[in-house]
Amino acid sequence: MSEGAWLWITLALIGSTTILTRGSFIIPGERARLPAFAHRLLRYAPAAALAALIAPDILLDQGAFDPINPKLLAAMVVIAISLRSRNPWLPFILGMGVLLLMRKGLGW
């Protein structure tokens, strides 16, 4: 493992990537503006990024494609609940409930 001073230097550099990326357009302010074309493209960024973070977790098992697995079924429940109910807590309760039931109850 990285030790002592090197570890803290590493952590500071990792932290600098957080500030640099998050501040890339916020810090320069009015002086930096994306062209309108880029803005139209970027409207799709959050949805694409969230899906790209979610999909590997619910479609893969140990790095291999697995179309029927407990996480995917729990995700289906979360989608169904989110589309039908405005209650913000239900997706967490039912999603985890389904996953734990299958993992612990059925030993999947």
């Binding site: 957080t18 990326t21 998050r22 501040g23 890339s24 357009f25 916020i26 994306l34 880029a38 803005h39 970027l42 409207r43 960024a45 959050p46 990024a49």
Partner: peptide, 8 residues
């Protein structure tokens, strides 16, 4: 991805 969020 934060570059994208930052620009937006």
């Amino acid at each position: 991805r934060f570059v994208i969020f930052s620009a937006a």
